[in-house]
Simulated scan of single mutants.
Amino acid sequence: MENFFTIIGGMGTLATEAFVHTLNRRTEAHQDQDYLDYIVVNHATIPDRTAYIKDNSLEDPEERIIEDLKLQSQLQPKFFVIPCNTAHYYFEGLQAATEIPILHMPRIAVEAIKERFPESKRIAVLATEGTILTDVYRHELEAQGYECIVPNQALQNKVNDLIYHEVKENKNLNFELYTEILEEVAETMSCEVTILGCTELSCLYEEYNLDDKYNIIDAQAETVGRTLELMEKKK
């Protein structure tokens, strides 16, 4: 292959599957040859990113991701996509390991706010505790002039339950819990836009269309859009 990109996935597997599904669904194609050329690396045994961020005595996932990037770089893809928000805590180290550009999922999500919700300033971020603790989204939001609002512990516990217990452990897209969280963000936290900054939450975004009720920016969906643009397949 010549004009292709590589997905460094498996963090988690269902999220990677959702990225690929969304990508294929949004590609304008009428025959097999119209779809994009890409390689999917589903490295499911990469250590948990949030667990390491909370406890540095555990195995560092960055080293494993760098190994994948170096190996895949030998094939010379056009760019890399890493459908895991928390992994972007390591972005600078990952990009330093390869000359191939890596799409920055949180940055792409924040850039989409201006286009889709230009008057909004108060932005909520729903993500893993690892992503919240590292301020990956806060840095991007504040750099672009937005106010970053993160959940209190009670709400974060609900988000954790949705990500880890419902989606990761049981493959259950819990609609009731998902909408309960979105309602609390919009009403109790008075946020104008909610960023779904976890690819497990992107699975729910893909399954349930709530755009008419809530102002949602899904980081994975926006990264799919950027991928299609770069591959000149934007609808």
Rank of each mutant, 00 (worst) to 15 (best):
R122P: 11
L201T: 04
N209I: 05
L133N: 13
H104A: 06
I216T: 08
L23R: 07
N42C: 15
I113D: 00
E59A: 00
S73N: 10
T6D: 06
A15Y: 08
Q72K: 13
N160K: 13
E222P: 12
V20T: 11
T6M: 05
I8K: 01
V40I: 13
E183P: 07
Q144S: 13
T50F: 07
E206P: 01
A221Y: 11
L162Q: 10
G9K: 06
T50M: 12
D135W: 01
N42K: 08
I66S: 02
N85C: 05
V193K: 05
E229V: 11
G197S: 11
N3K: 15
T199Y: 00
T50C: 10
Q33N: 09
V41K: 10
K171G: 12
D34S: 05
I46E: 00
E147C: 11
E99I: 07
L196N: 05
P47V: 03
P47M: 02
A127C: 12
H30V: 09
E180G: 02
R107F: 04
D37R: 14
N160W: 07
F5G: 04
F19W: 10
L14C: 11
M189P: 03
Y90R: 07
D34K: 03
V193F: 10
E140G: 14
E92T: 06
M231P: 07
S190F: 01
Q153C: 01
Q31C: 15
Q144L: 14
I7C: 01
E206M: 08
H21G: 10
E63M: 06
V81Y: 09
E169C: 11
C148W: 03
V125R: 04
F175Y: 14
T134Y: 00
K54Y: 03
K233V: 02
D32S: 11
M231D: 11
K114R: 09
E169V: 09
R49T: 03
F4R: 09
E119I: 13
I123Y: 11
G225S: 10
R226S: 09
T128E: 09
T50G: 08
F117V: 12
A97Q: 07
N172K: 07
K168R: 04
V40Y: 04
K158L: 13
Y214G: 04
E129V: 14
G9T: 08
L75N: 12
E200L: 07
R25F: 13
S202P: 00
G93A: 13
D212M: 10
G225I: 06
Q153F: 01
L155M: 15
Q220H: 04
N174A: 06
I46C: 02
D32W: 01
E222D: 14
H21W: 03
I100K: 06
A112T: 02
H104P: 02
I216V: 15
R49V: 01
P101T: 13
E142W: 13
T27G: 00
E200C: 06
I216W: 10
T50Y: 11
E184A: 08
T223Y: 05
N24S: 10
T86G: 03
T16E: 03
Q31L: 08
T50H: 09
C84D: 14
N85I: 00
M189H: 14
P101W: 12
L71P: 03
G10D: 01
I181H: 01
L201I: 11
R64L: 03
E2R: 12
A109T: 04
V167Y: 02
I163Q: 08
V136R: 00
I123P: 05
V20H: 06
